[in-house]
Design a protein around this nucleic acid. Structure first.
Lengths: 139, 139
DNA sequence: CCACTACGACTACAGTTGTAGTAGATCTAA
DNA sequence: TTAGATCTACTACAACTGTAGTCGTAGTGG
């Protein structure tokens, strides 16, 4: 029962829910940049579909309007996106990183940060392997 | 007109074209793991759609079978994928990298490699700014 | 020469995504 | 209290994806 795939527009809607917390359809719609703002009913349809997928739930009602809140976390959804992408790249991060660099959005800062994070994780893993049987690497 | 978005299955087919070079529909189909191998006609339909999108072209004919070859490069297609993903993350690489780490597929090696690559690019940029805009980044 | 098989071209169809209209319930302000 | 603004709940529909069947033709083994 892994969380379902979320489409582009669905993710944009989730983003509003994640950053604004519980929100009405109207508010979600207005969170879109005027430039590319879908019709109210378009957003409404998407929110209903998200509800059907279990990604969102009705939390309460204000007046006659429903207020929705995210059920799946931003982290889980993003994780799912990355995993899917990774699948397309044969499971290797390397080409992904290479493209991030090419597109100029990966900074040296990001890389350093990543290195710190990795080292911290590695330390944790080593520590825990003294207690339990070390679990394999298996790429 | 940028290259079109390629779907999952379309990408898998392109992958075969990229790695095997010019290939017949039959060969593409057989390149799928027996586990999840679509019907011959399914692959055929996809190849035709790829042709309609201009991602693939018929290169020659062997017997009555057409042999197709990739028109868009693996690099361009992957780049497109990453750019799309990046859009969903607000253009920042940071969360992408964080998830790669979380999912355990980004190794310290990858990070070091990335750092080298970044530094090399940076050096080039500095150098080239002294000698007019040189046009790297073809493809 | 002819049955068979491999292919190609075409068609079909259901599920997803993006987009939005309509009808009727409800709220709210005058 | 009633007209206009909102909302909900449905419905519609086209493009895209994945999946595959049909049918006619082109080569091939006998």
């Amino acid at each position: 029962m892994g969380l379902p795939r979320l489409s582009r527009l669905e993710l944009q809607i989730m983003e509003t829910l994640w950053s604004h917390g519980a929100t009405s359809v109207r508010e979600i719609q207005e969170a879109f940049p005027e430039k590319a703002r879908p019709a109210y009913t378009t957003v409404q349809t998407m929110v209903y579909r998200l509800e059907a997928k279990g990604a969102v739930r009705r939390s309460k009602k204000i007046g006659n309007a429903h207020v929705f809140e995210a059920v799946v976390s931003r982290n889980a959804a993003q994780r799912r996106l990355i995993d899917d992408l990774l699948g397309l790249f044969g499971g290797s991060s390397q080409p992904v990183v290479a493209h991030l660099i090419e597109s100029g959005s990966l900074t040296l800062e990001d890389v350093r940060e990543a290195e710190r994070m990795l080292k911290r994780l590695q330390a944790e893993k080593t520590a825990s392997s003294k207690v339990k049987g070390r679990s394999r690497r298996l790429t």
